[in-house]
């Protein structure tokens, strides 16, 4: 455990990437939600702008500072030859981060399912009510 933590400290880009992955995943979902549920009763301009900033900001920031050719997909976005390759790399980075984000959600879903299974056990074998008032209702 200590080795893992020291690795994170030695390689802060890992922590920054993880923080960026979380921001990008949530902002992407929120942006799609705002666009899909757009209606006359909403005032979504500020939330949409915030989502775009939280979505593009981390990708651009880490894309600029991180080294090219790493497995994390980070690269010098602004040192690319032309705008098309910039867009290609940006799209790839965004795609990869969303992939990381949803993989993380899938990774922790079994814990949620374990809690759900415990709840199912509780309702399958209900205990008799301890409260005398509830017990009288049961009777």
């Amino acid at each position: 455990m200590i080795e893992m933590l020291s690795f994170l400290i030695e390689e802060p880009i890992n922590v920054a990437t993880c923080i960026g992955v979380g921001m990008v995943t949530v902002s992407f979902c929120f942006l799609i939600h705002l666009l899909a549920t757009f209606n006359e009763y909403h005032r979504p301009i500020i939330p949409i702008l915030a989502s775009i900033i939280f979505l593009l900001g981390p990708v651009l920031m880490l894309g600029v500072v991180a080294g090219q050719g790493q497995d994390t997909g980070s690269m010098y976005l602004f040192e690319l030859d032309n705008f098309k390759s910039f867009l290609d790399n940006f799209k790839s980075l965004l795609f990869l981060w969303l992939d990381f984000g949803f993989s993380t959600l899938f990774l922790f879903l079994p814990l949620l399912f374990a809690v759900g299974t415990l709840q199912m056990l509780r309702i399958t074998f209900p205990r008799p009510a301890e409260d005398p008032l509830l017990a009288s209702i049961d009777d």
């Binding site: 893992m4 993880c18 992955v21 979380g22 902002s27 500020i46 939330p47 915030a50 989502s51 922790f108």
Partner: peptide
Amino acid sequence: PFFILLGLIVLASMAATICLHVQVVRYT
């Protein structure tokens, strides 16, 4: 287990980002 540690950081970041979005909606 290193991936689990990274995953926990991602989850914490997701929770913080949700809080940020809630604040933005409240401000709006």
